[in-house]
Amino acid sequence: MEFKKFFLKANNELEGDSPMQRSRRITCPKCQKKLMVSKVRKNYFVCPECGNYFGVRSRRRALMLCDKRSFVELFADLESRNILGFPEYEDKLNAAMKKSREKEGVVCGEGTIGGIRVCIFAMDANFMMGSMGAVVGEKITRLFEYASEESLPVIGVTVSGGARMQEGMISLMQMSKVSAAVKRHSDKGNLYIVLLTNPTTGGVDASFAMQGDITLAEPGARVGFAGPRVIEKTLNQVLPGNFQRAERVLECGFIDEVVPREKQREVLQQILKVHSKKLLNA
């Protein structure tokens, strides 16, 4: 098994640790206010003016959730190729790698939260909208298998537009492949916590994103299978404004709690401590 030490990459306008990068200003897409990058980062990548949630890179998620310098990346050498010879897929993969500075749409690894060992995977919307291809499925499956061997809990941070059409049926097969690994992990009495972020849709929502023992979500995250435009055209009626939003999905019983970003690490630590005590008393 290949391990790679975790280093945060400066790969978007909110990343980077130099004084010049931190002093830059960006525009909030919701309220249109000019914001200091340093203030947005200090506020957990949430607009201090209107509360809009900025997207967070997969590696930054690891930094935010895990104890400092505890994260070690796994399976970093895996990357997609054009298995089916789909036209222009190589170009799309290269563009996604350049945009995200990642080899794939998910980062997997092991770290600690509150001193408790965990496995964690975080999907990245900057890599083809976090779409699920063969390598995404393989990396997450391997992570669950590793967690099963080590008797570790898994924390999954999901963001996805669904299956990757350029890989056809191979992409769709990842739904059952990962689901089987989740089941084996569960059968051994291990914990799986999911954190749904905006958006979590398609085949990811229809499989491992909704199979956690405990399901959390960020405020305002869109959670569902098909998009609202497709559903509106199918039903020929206008949907309510909160349709598929985390708060509404919580009301319907599919989510256990909507957790603000600044509270997520604390909530995860509490859940892990309770679970660890149960295991010790079993």
Rank of each mutant, 00 (worst) to 15 (best):
E2I: 15
K5E: 15
N11P: 06
E15F: 03
E15Y: 08
P19H: 04
P19M: 01
T27Y: 10
C28W: 02
K30Q: 13
L35E: 04
M36Q: 12
K39I: 06
R41S: 04
Y44G: 03
F45A: 01
V46S: 01
E49G: 05
R57C: 07
R57T: 09
S58G: 14
L65G: 00
C66M: 06
D67C: 03
K68Q: 14
K68T: 01
S70A: 05
E73W: 03
L78C: 00
F86M: 10
Y89A: 13
D91T: 12
K98W: 13
K99W: 00
R101I: 08
R101G: 11
E102I: 00
E102Q: 13
K103R: 08
K103D: 06
G114S: 09
G115T: 01
I120N: 05
F121D: 11
F121I: 05
N126I: 00
N126H: 15
F127W: 02
M132R: 14
G133A: 02
V135R: 07
V136C: 10
E145Y: 08
E145I: 09
S148G: 04
L152G: 03
G156H: 06
V157F: 04
G161Y: 11
G162F: 09
R164W: 13
M165G: 15
M165Q: 10
M165T: 09
E167H: 06
G168P: 07
M169A: 15
L172G: 12
L172E: 11
M173C: 08
S176T: 05
V182R: 15
H185D: 00
G189K: 02
N190Q: 06
V194D: 12
N198V: 07
G202N: 12
G202M: 13
S207N: 13
S207Y: 14
D213S: 13
D213N: 15
L216I: 04
A221W: 07
V223E: 08
G224S: 07
F225A: 13
A226Y: 04
P228E: 01
P228Y: 05
T234K: 13
L235W: 07
P240F: 03
P240I: 10
N242Q: 13
R245E: 04
R248W: 01
E251F: 03
F254I: 10
E262R: 14
Q264L: 15
Q270S: 05
I271A: 07
K273I: 04
S276C: 00
L279E: 14
L279T: 02
L279M: 11
N281E: 03
